[in-house]
Amino acid sequence: MSKIFIVEDDRSIREELAELLRNSGYEAEYLTDFSNSKAKILSAKPDLILMDINIPDLNGEQLLKEIRSETDTPVIMVTSRTSETDEVLSMSYGADDYITKPYNPTILLLRISAVLKRSAGSVTVQSYNGLQVNDAKGCLTDGSRELILTKNEMIIFRFMLDRRGSIVTRDELMTALWDNDEFVNDNALTVNISRLRSKLADLGCEDAIETRKKQGYILR
């Protein structure tokens, strides 16, 4: 039975979450005193940590950074913050996933299951034009620099990488995002592709994504 440790300062939320996890076959523990949080979390030796960003005494992102310096235990950030900046910062500090409140309990359980399965197996690392693609960390690296992608950017990039050299339509990309419970409109898709292009260019992959008018995109 996997042990999940909850870091949430709202009593009702953490107790409801603990009940959800226990009813789903997990062992659940949580903090009630947030002093010396890192030591308490590490001593519990959980298989996965669910952590809010807004917690007493220490910002959740900073706590994540400190935990990550000592352990590779998977961490999912569960937060009411919805800005892309918070997601990018959390992923750069080592979060394995990021889900916003209010969340669908079924979706949260699926995310937990996916992260646990991923952590139990080997890290998937593939290459693209000399870059290492690390799905577990959600990043691209050229060996000296590491570039974090948002979840949407990684879904888009992975979808196009799996179909490299073939035209990918906007409808296909929207469906891929929806299948991962990432709901975006047409304008948001354009913004995500633009940011992905820019990030790939920063790592030396200029013109990596070609636009085919009225058809879609090709990853070169």
Results as ranks from 00 to 15, higher is better:
Leu31Tyr: 02
Val123Ala: 00
Arg111Tyr: 04
Ile218Tyr: 05
Ala176Arg: 04
Val123Ile: 13
Ile67Ser: 00
Ser92Val: 11
Leu196Glu: 04
Glu153Val: 02
Gln126Ser: 11
Lys40Leu: 00
Ser119Pro: 03
Ala39Lys: 13
Arg197Asp: 10
Ile53Leu: 02
Phe183Leu: 10
Ile67Asn: 04
Arg158Thr: 11
Leu63Pro: 07
Asp142Trp: 06
Met154Tyr: 13
Leu50Tyr: 10
Val88Ile: 13
Ile218Glu: 01
Asp86Cys: 04
Ile53Tyr: 02
Asp202Val: 05
Glu182Ile: 14
Gly25Phe: 02
Thr150Glu: 12
Lys213Glu: 06
Arg118Gly: 04
Ile4Asp: 03
Ser24Arg: 06
Lys3Leu: 13
Asp97Ala: 08
Gln126Ala: 09
Gln126His: 04
Ile167Val: 15
Asp9Ser: 01
Gly165Arg: 13
Thr124Phe: 09
Pro105Gly: 12
Trp178His: 10
Phe159Ala: 07
Asp142Met: 14
Arg164Tyr: 06
Leu177Tyr: 04
Glu29Met: 03
Phe157Glu: 03
Glu153Leu: 02
Arg118Tyr: 14
Ala188Thr: 12
Leu131Gly: 05
Tyr128Arg: 02
Lys214Arg: 11
Tyr103Ala: 03
Glu61Ser: 12
Leu109Tyr: 05
Val133Lys: 00
Phe157Ser: 07
Phe183Ser: 04
Ala208Gly: 07
Leu149Gly: 02
Pro56Cys: 08
Asp97Trp: 11
Ser119Ile: 04
Leu89Glu: 05
Leu58His: 06
Asp52Lys: 00
Leu63Arg: 13
Ala18Arg: 13
Gly121Gln: 14
Ile67Val: 11
Met1Pro: 14
Leu31Gln: 02
Phe5Gly: 08
Ala95Trp: 07
Gly143Ala: 11
Asn59Pro: 13
Glu146Val: 10
Ser2Trp: 00
Leu161Val: 10
Gly130Glu: 03
Asp186Cys: 15
Asp181Gly: 08
Lys65Phe: 14
Gly94Ser: 06
Tyr26His: 07
Leu196Cys: 06
Ser37Leu: 01
Ile107Tyr: 10
Gln62Val: 15
Ala114Met: 12
Lys45Met: 09
Val191Asp: 11
Ile55Ala: 00
Ala188Gly: 01
Lys40Ala: 00
Arg158Met: 10
Leu48Thr: 06
Ser119Phe: 13
Thr73Ser: 09
Glu66His: 06
Thr82Tyr: 12
Asp186His: 15
Asp47Arg: 03
Gly216Gln: 02
Lys65Ile: 06
Ala188Asp: 10
Ile167Ser: 05
Val191Thr: 13
Asn104Val: 03
Cys205Gln: 14
Leu177Trp: 04
Glu70Gly: 15
Ser194His: 01
Asp9Pro: 00
Leu161Asp: 11
Ser113Arg: 06
Asp142Lys: 12
Asp9Gln: 02
Ile41Lys: 01
Lys151Phe: 11
Glu29Ser: 14
Gly25Ile: 09
Ser43Trp: 03
Asp202His: 07
Glu146Thr: 14
Glu29Asn: 14
Val7Tyr: 06
Asn180Arg: 10
Arg158Pro: 07
Leu219Pro: 11
Arg170Leu: 01
Val115Gln: 10
Asp171Ile: 12
Glu61Gln: 05
Ala120Pro: 05
Leu20Cys: 08
Val75His: 12
Leu21Cys: 05
Pro105Cys: 03
Thr100Gln: 07
Leu116Val: 08
Arg14Asn: 08
Leu17Phe: 08
